[in-house]
Every structure is written in C-alpha cells, then in structure tokens.
Design a protein around this nucleic acid. Sequence first.
DNA 1: GCCGAGAATGAATCCATCC
DNA 2: AGGATGGATTCATTCTCGG
Lengths: 247, 247
Amino acid sequence: MKPYFDRGGCTIYLGECLEVLPLLDGVGAVITDPPYSSGGAFRGDRTRSTVAKYVQTGTVAYRPEFAGDSRDQRAYLAWCSLWMLAARNASVEGAPIACFTDWRQLPVTTDAIQSAGWTWRGVAVWSKKYGRVNSAGFSAACEFLPFGSNGPAQERDDYPGGHISCSPESGDDKLHIAQKPLTVMGWACRIAPIGATILDPFMGSGSTLLAARLNGRKSIGIEVDERYCEIAAKRLGQEVFAFEEIP
Amino acid sequence: MKPYFDRGGCTIYLGECLEVLPLLDGVGAVITDPPYSSGGAFRGDRTRSTVAKYVQTGTVAYRPEFAGDSRDQRAYLAWCSLWMLAARNASVEGAPIACFTDWRQLPVTTDAIQSAGWTWRGVAVWSKKYGRVNSAGFSAACEFLPFGSNGPAQERDDYPGGHISCSPESGDDKLHIAQKPLTVMGWACRIAPIGATILDPFMGSGSTLLAARLNGRKSIGIEVDERYCEIAAKRLGQEVFAFEEIP
DNA sequence: GCCGAGAATGAATCCATCC
DNA sequence: AGGATGGATTCATTCTCGG
C-alpha cells in the first residue's frame, strides 16, 4: 500500500485502520487517542456530530468533524477489541500499547485491551491543571492512559512516571477538537524504546507522529479523513527543514 | 446497636459492615477506602496476607493485618455491589459516594457503583508525586476515586477539583498499611455538603472520620477489627481536648 | 536555622523453591 | 501440576541527622 506521506521515519497511510493494520508488521509500540464515543450520558447526546457535541473554545478556525465517534458502549468494546487485536498482530513481542480515554470509557477500554490479548499493566493519568467545572461532583480534571504489553514487557529502567500535569491545548494552534499537547504525547511516546516504530491508528492532526519524531522514535499514522492527512503531513514537513532519517 | 465510640459528631460501630449498614439511615455521603483485594498479577500473590504482600521494609512500626483483602474479581464485584447497595439504602437522595481503588480494581469498582443503583459520575485522581517503580511500563503513581450520586446529584458550585497531588503517608505516624493522608481525605470529604454525615464502612485507622471532623462534617465509621476501632477512637479523642459537637 | 549527604520508604512484581 | 511462600529488585522522594 502506498503511503500518503513517508519522510524522516514518519509514515502516514490514508484509510480505515481495520483495513490498513493487517498490512503492517514490526510495530514497536501502539500509542493512540481514538474517538472516545463519549460526550454525554444519553444516546441522543452521543450521536450528535463532534463539532456540535464538544464545545469549541476560543475563536479558532473551523475544524473538520471526525469520524467514528458515535458508538454505544457495547459496539465501542467490540470495535476497540478488533483494532487492538489487529494492532497486536502487527506488533513485536513485548511491545507496549497505550490508549487515551476519558473516565466514561475507561472500563470498556481496559476490557478491550485484555480482550485483544494484550496484558493490561496499569493506568497512567494526564491531569489538566484545570478541568471543566462539574455541578454534580469532582471536576473532570483528568484523562486516562491505560497501558499494557504484548506478552512479557520489555525490561527497562527508564519507563516514564505514571502521571503528568499539563494544561490542555487551546486557541488557533489547535487543529483537532481532541488534540493533545506535544508535552503529553512526548511523555506517552517514552513508553516505547528509543528508535522503535510507534503506531497511531487514529492519527488525527499527527501529534503522536510529531512527538515520536521529537523523541527519537519512528512512527506510522493511519487516518481515514484526507483533510487530517493533509494537516498532519504539513505539520510533519514543517518540523524539519531538511527532513532526515532519525539517527 | 451500641456504638463503640460516639463523641463530637463522630460515631464508630464495631462490626461487619453488611450487618451494621441496614441499621443506619440519614447518611449524607459515603466516602471510603475498602480493601482492594489487589496486590499482584497472580492469585497466589493476591491471597497472601496483607503484611506479606504489601512491602514494609526497614524499621517501621508493626501494623496489624487487615481483613477482606483476598477476594477474586468476581467476588469483589459481588461484595462491593452488596455493601454499596446497603450504603445507598442508608443514604439520603442525592448523596454522593466516593470509593478509593487502585488501577487494577477500577473497572470493577465502577461496575459495582452502577450495579448498586448509584449513578456513576466520574473518576477523581490522587497522584502521589512518585510511585513505585514499574519494570513493565509507567510507574504506578496514582490511586483512583470513582464517584457518583444517589439519584440526581445535589447542585453546588463548590465541588472540589478532580485531581489532588500529595505524598503518601509514611513513618511511625502511619497506623495502617493503606492509610491515606489527611490532606487527601479532607479533599474527598468536601464532596459532601457541610454539616452532612459522612459514612465510611471500612474505617481502618479512622482518617475519614478525622478529616470529616476537621472539615465540619459529621461522620459514622464501621470497622470489623477491634484493634483498629481502638486506634481510631484514640486518634479522634486526641483531636480535640474538649470534644464538642460540630457547630 | 539552613543545607547536604546518606538512609529509609513504598496498597509491587516476578521468579525460584518447597510442599 | 498447582498452590503457597520467600525473597531480590527498584528509585524518586522524604526523612534524619550532623555540621
């Protein structure tokens, strides 16, 4: 399959992840931020378009809607199990997986990790310094990063800490509604060995690939929406003037 | 039923929580830190005594075993559902529940909250600044506080934030292997309205009751082990010389 | 009282060994 | 085979103590 973009150790495929994943192998880590299919307690809330259901702060440019964000919990479990299994089949033994999620989908995500045959090994946390106020309990100040490994984990003495505190992305620099700060993605990328290939099956605007590059890891991104492939390719191309292989 | 201790708005019952809970009513919030039944990937590790399975190196003071920490996941779900239901029956409408857990039991705990008829509303996080090293991924730096409410939540504009960072308890002041810092319990107690009665069905050394008192809430603790009732009563008695009702 | 060095600590995990 | 037990390993942060 011909990549949409392939330079400096960063590769982008345009397509459905369930169709692209079976073509890959040698993946050293899976790090991703899939559509949460969250955003409301009721089905009617969940199935609204992503632009409508997530509040867009500030005077930002229009961001395209993103696909695959309207599954109910049962379907979300089945779907996550499928792509996680396909991703595991593409991964080397001992490879880690780390998958962002919010509180609502956290139990389903840990179930899916295990359903797909990964060994679940913990839940790391990104706290946002300030969270959405909540009139019904503690504010929603954290996102969660359940993680695991493909069989016995690689033994290392420099795994990152299980908690990071960082303000969320905002303003005009934000290219995707659910975009994570590079600081957060860089922290997540350090779960992968240096030089390994990090796979992100839900690339979006490409923050995972950019963070991988900045942290000395190779990367593969898959994205179903060509507008986001374009945005990500532009970001990656800008990152280095003379774009060279990662040493 | 005669309380083991009852002064200054703090009440302790000695007994099994499933036997004591049906006798209670008017509870304004449930805040607790039950035995996690965690501590290892293998059944053999989980079923070890709490003194053996939780590290206590060096010259620490001896801390008594605590009971009920060796259930498998199925039994843990069933048991949590039972006591959470009994606690809900003792609670006023709109009362919040918040129950500490570790990463391994988090999905089971949110299932239990919902099985028992509480409305699950989120997951708050205590990050410990440093966590135990992990040779297989991110360090275990956080404990989790899933929370919910008994029906529609009480609307308030002063709910606490969903994240707190605080070092764990240590040294001779730590009376229970799993003792939480007063800072953390105080934060948790602020989920309850001022003046409400906070129920902790797994009192241990009484940190919840002490934090409730220090934050202007009344409290009820249940504990199955008389040694811990004694320790908690002593701590609560010391807190105020002339022990008066909470204003 | 302040500072730095060294010791202590931890709601673990994994493997080897013994029954 | 499988359950129970012993014990090595791990390091950022906190604690202790002397100067």
